[in-house]
Design a protein around this nucleic acid. Sequence first.
DNA 1: CTAGCTTCCTGATAGC
DNA 2: TGCTATCAGGAAGCTA
Length: 296
Amino acid sequence: MPELPEVETVRRIISPQIEGCVIGAITINHPQVIKHPEAGVFCDAVKGRAIVGTDRRGKFLKIALDNGAVIVLHLRMTGQFLVTPADFPVEKHTHVIFQLDSGRQLRYIDTRRFGGFWLIAKDEPDDVTCMPKLGLEPFDPALTAAYLQGKAGGSRRAIKNMLLDQTIVTGIGNIYSDEILFRTKIHPQRACRDLSYTEWQALAESIPCIINWGIETNAVTAEEHLAGKGKKYRNTPYLQAYGHAGKPCPRCDTPFKKVSVGGRSSCYCPHCQGEIEGAPAAEKDKRKDTPAPIKG
DNA sequence: CTAGCTTCCTGATAGC
DNA sequence: TGCTATCAGGAAGCTA
């Protein structure tokens, strides 16, 4: 589920509750969520270690241990990370439980099981996660119009896809890319190489702005997070564009439209963000008239 | 280089 | 009520 703001929110909630704690018994109900090393090895290496701090890189959460190793976690679509009392009811799809010496538990819950854990030992090269390939953090001062234009300015790719490309700027997902494009008044299907320098500037400025807004709007207390079972910290009620197909634009009242860009749905205001010349609508009525060609 | 497809999974929802 | 199809906030891997 989460994009950078949600991951950062979770980090801020759990961090003070786990820092300084020693990890005791570990229950793994679904070994596949341990991506590296093998689940048994992971447990042996983590058990007995103290947690010294947390960090975040893009949408990855990092938990630093006292021996220099780092637990890396990605929540993907439906992952939840929750600190609970030991007797807190166990949610369905709870795959990993870390017992802490505080008496509480750190639990990983993930309906679709796309997310997972890696353990990177001290001095072990991190070639098992994609973190080494990640691009700039949204708040990195190096994130400028020139950087973006240099990375993607010559590309025919849709700007929406560029925003979702974690190797350019990391942390943006489908929600915040729609918000960023709405704010900057850029149509999601515009080709990167057709953007003006002014538009790249608007993007460079809006990316940290929107992401920071997302983090601040998400803020909930640890108690609220627990009460919501790790789910209710998202700012969907405050979003301006994402998921608003058919609803009026907050700026001009024109109904938002929905298009598919690179397999992801995207909402935009046809007045504020314009329409794409030459390749409009078309998309609308693809019925089953034309049977898919049989391949193979 | 790039668009498009598949894959990892379960669940909510819309339509019949 | 139940069935089926579609879609979901992520991302890697593969093909053409």
